[in-house]
Amino acid sequence: MTNMLYLMADLAGSRVAIESSQVESIVHLPDVVPVPMCDPSIAGIFALRSRVLTLIDTQFHITGVQKAAHKGTLAVVTEIAGHQYGLLVDKVHDVVSIAIAQAESNILPPAAWNRYVDQVATHEGELVMILNTEALVSGQPALAT
């Protein structure tokens, strides 16, 4: 039974956890430049120092409603398959330790979340969904399912 560190965040109104080793940093967005004619889950591109990152509209994946990305909105920076992405989140909380044994195997996340959630765990008596960040940027739009 191992304890892993997770970043707790709010996303589309729900509490989620992202494994901390996947989180490179948390930033307030600078200017976001929209990318025309591309997948609706892309909120745009933004600069982080000398790098250009792709901003994922995580909320669109869940609710199908695009979220406007303003300057100053919070994003979680993560690297997937050699590219860096920002994941839009509503709010970030603490980094906490969750034991895998605490995972609730018999509770399934709601259908809209199912593709993006690895498992459901409890933290301080509350249920949290552990996000699979790779699914969010897999390039398969939620519309296809």
Partner: peptide, 27 residues
């Protein structure tokens, strides 16, 4: 030229991204 993420390049319209001196990324 900086490579773009596959999702951005997927539509075939873009060759990559770039970051000019003003710090605002450009497709």
């Amino acid at each position: 030229v900086k490579p773009g993420a596959p999702l951005v390049m997927g539509n075939g319209l873009f060759a990559g991204t770039s970051l000019p001196d003003n710090g605002r990324p450009m497709l």
